[in-house]
Write a protein that binds this DNA or RNA. Structure first.
Lengths: 338, 338
DNA sequence: GTACATTCTGTTATGGATAACAATCATAAG
DNA sequence: CTTATGATTGTTATCCATAACAGAATGTAC
């Protein structure tokens, strides 16, 4: 009845082997200053010999810090999710934290359930990378006890907001198209309840208005390439459409595909600008003009902020928005001569 | 000197409020059978009133199970990583586990360090989605105590291997191109030390040999679109190249881009097949013929396996390989008439 | 009414580490 | 030589929940 996997040795076992108290072992492993060199070496040798590994849960229990961060993302596999998650991982590792990831659907129950799991898990801080919508108040109650950073401002939680200046992103893209000579710019927006999406939409509209251009009705997708394709099938049928700002590169791929199928050439007939600059944007056909925003960087900054917030709970916590950059490639050109 | 974030109430606080012992609270929360209904309700009310949440770490400490799975991925943001991670999350949630994610570079130190962090964190099981190469033996030592599943067989750990039949994937792709009438098929492989990559390479070669075709020298990329582009610049200069099997869709995008820039039309001049069927494959220009393998599904299956292994440490654990499917789209066609 | 099983609840020990305090020893200062 | 000071190590209490055991209360069988 031998178990294949058993608990390893505990600190007291190391202590016994080294002929010291458990506390001394703890001191050695935590690099406390006042330990005699010879003792340190004996303890290290014993720990090594027994292949001892400190039990982080016991440690967390007594210190009250788990050295773990929770990150909540949506359960969809898009570029922004995965690169943000990667940034969080990397940032957390550098800061000496491990990451507990949970995913959730968009419903209020799913979101609060996910946050709840993180809180129960005893994380020291939480990064929420999802629009909370009507789950906002419930989640805020849950996170009373845990420092929290958001990467989506739609919940109205501007405290601890880390992200990219979406207003600027849309301005850059829209202006680029206008400067090329297009009369106006159409917009395939993201879902209405994402703050990023709403910010881009508002800013696109404002830019057109300020330039005294007609503001065409906006279309909406759900970030998926397929939704871009659907919207592209609509826009491609309208000859007056010569410039389109698509709220994400992934949707832009779909838009371009649909336009191509309808016989509209990119960029000769229609110019398309995406947002994000995903890895594949430079390698599409034609290469995609887009507005770069690094989600990985956002993830890292979220961690940095969160770690500061953990160390200093009462601190000021103004929004931290990075500036996106326009990347001009082959999918934009002056409008066809009428 | 008021702390903004403090520990919440403990079980004893709930017990006091409900006028029972802590053990009874524990029983109520764990749905033990022998608790009187009136007591249960009083406890529930008290817990609710105090907004009590059970401390999972204390729980894990005494039960010896953290209900947490660790997953190790590489610190690169490609499609396979993120969709596998998503599958793991979803599977874990369904199985009642939370996920601890760590990323690592390819070096032996980074890999062992990452696994080490997971073990220290007290996870109940580990999913390794990275080629271990020379870190294999060290890692195996580390995972003696923790049930482990691999999604890459290069480490020689075929025990607990979950993935997709890569031999079949390459066979399907290669045969498809041969059946279209191409004289032979060129291959842009992945990095040499990934087992997936090696399996595809071997199987591509075997398929050509069995068909009595010339086996051209293979090229290697690193899974990135950029590496595909570089290889494409080479292949596009050779007029005899009419069919290319690229080991991942992301590299295939790069290959196609390079071929286009060199004036070779897809699929009229050159046919290209990818592997993976990423979300964007259907929306590229032209849509990409590829071999579909669901990494998300692999992640889920890895969790299922792992959970079984945790419950039954001594169990048989043969490789579990899913069958990939050929998806024909617009990037393949018969060779140009010579 | 006695003997025994069941149901419900409480008490104590435990998991593995660290904080706070106490004790010892050596060295420096007076 | 005495006292203060600092370095080094050990002891005890604690974090929070659960397992194992124990006790009380109720019901059942004869």
């Amino acid at each position: 009845m031998e178990r294949k996997f058993n608990r390893g040795p505990a600190m007291r076992d190391v202590a016994r082997a080294a002929g010291v108290s458990a506390q001394t072992v703890s001191r050695v492993l935590s690099n406390h200053p006042n330990v005699q060199e010879s003792t340190r070496q004996r303890v290290m040798a014993a720990a090594d010999e027994l292949d001892y590994r400190r039990n982080n849960m016991a440690r967390a229990l007594v210190t009250g810090r788990s050295k773990t961060l929770g990150v909540l993302t949506l359960a969809t596999n898009n570029y922004s999710r995965s690169s943000l998650a990667l940034g969080v991982e990397l940032g957390a590792r550098e800061a000496g934290y491990t990451v507990n990831s949970v995913t959730s659907g968009l419903s209020a129950e799913a979101l609060t359930g996910a946050v709840s799991r993180l809180v129960n898990q005893g994380v020291d801080g939480i990064i929420i990378a999802a629009p909370l919508r009507d789950a906002a108040s419930t989640v805020r109650r849950l996170t009373m006890r845990v420092p929290t950073v958001n990467t989506d401002g739609s919940s109205g939680i501007s405290d601890g907001l880390v992200g990219v200046d979406q207003d600027l992103a849309a301005v850059l893209a829209t202006r680029h198209l206008l400067e090329l000579g297009h009369a106006t710019v159409w917009h395939v927006a993201g879902p209405e309840d994402w703050s990023d999406s709403a910010a881009r939409l508002g800013s696109w509209r404002r830019t057109l208005e300020e330039a005294g251009r007609e503001v065409p009705p906006e279309l909406h997708g759900d970030w998926s390439p397929e939704s871009g394709y659907r919207n592209g099938l609509v826009l491609g049928r309208m000859p007056e459409v010569t410039a389109i700002l698509v709220a994400s590169d992934e949707m832009a791929f779909g838009v371009i595909r649909a336009l191509s199928e309808l016989g509209r050439r990119i960029p000769e007939d229609v110019s398309v600008v995406g947002i994000d600059d995903i890895d594949l944007a430079a390698y599409s056909n034609p290469p995609l003009t887009t507005v770069r925003q690094s989600f990985e960087d956002t993830g890292r900054r979220a961690v940095t902020h969160l770690v500061e917030l953990i160390a200093n709970p009462g601190m000021d916590n103004p929004p931290d928005l990075a500036a996106p950059v326009l990347v001009v490639r082959g999918s934009t050109a002056p409008p066809p001569a009428a």
